[in-house]
Computed example of a mutant assay.
Amino acid sequence: MRLSTWSVLAVTLLLSACANGGPWVEVGGERFKVEIADDDAERARGLMFRDELATGTGMLFIHEDEQPQAYWMKNTRIPLDILYFDNDRKLVTQQRNVPPCSGGNRCPSYPSDQPARYVLELNAGEAERLKLQDGAEMTFGKGIPPVR
Results as ranks from 00 to 15, higher is better:
residue 35 E to V: 00
residue 36 I to H: 06
residue 36 I to F: 13
residue 37 A to W: 12
residue 37 A to F: 10
residue 37 A to Q: 15
residue 38 D to L: 00
residue 38 D to R: 08
residue 39 D to E: 14
residue 40 D to W: 04
residue 40 D to R: 06
residue 41 A to I: 15
residue 41 A to N: 04
residue 41 A to H: 14
residue 42 E to W: 05
residue 42 E to F: 03
residue 43 R to N: 06
residue 43 R to S: 04
residue 43 R to G: 07
residue 44 A to H: 12
residue 44 A to L: 09
residue 44 A to F: 12
residue 44 A to Q: 15
residue 45 R to L: 04
residue 45 R to K: 06
residue 45 R to N: 00
residue 45 R to Q: 14
residue 45 R to E: 01
residue 46 G to Q: 12
residue 46 G to D: 14
residue 47 L to N: 08
residue 47 L to R: 04
residue 47 L to H: 03
residue 48 M to D: 14
residue 48 M to G: 13
residue 48 M to T: 12
residue 48 M to V: 11
residue 51 D to S: 05
residue 51 D to H: 04
residue 51 D to V: 00
residue 53 L to H: 00
residue 54 A to N: 11
residue 54 A to D: 15
residue 54 A to I: 10
residue 55 T to P: 09
residue 55 T to L: 08
residue 55 T to S: 12
residue 56 G to D: 14
residue 56 G to N: 15
residue 57 T to H: 11
residue 57 T to S: 15
residue 57 T to A: 10
residue 58 G to E: 09
residue 58 G to S: 11
residue 58 G to Y: 08
residue 59 M to D: 14
residue 59 M to G: 04
residue 59 M to L: 08
residue 59 M to S: 03
residue 60 L to S: 09
residue 61 F to Q: 10
residue 61 F to A: 04
residue 61 F to T: 05
residue 62 I to Q: 01
residue 62 I to F: 01
residue 63 H to V: 00
residue 64 E to H: 09
residue 65 D to E: 10
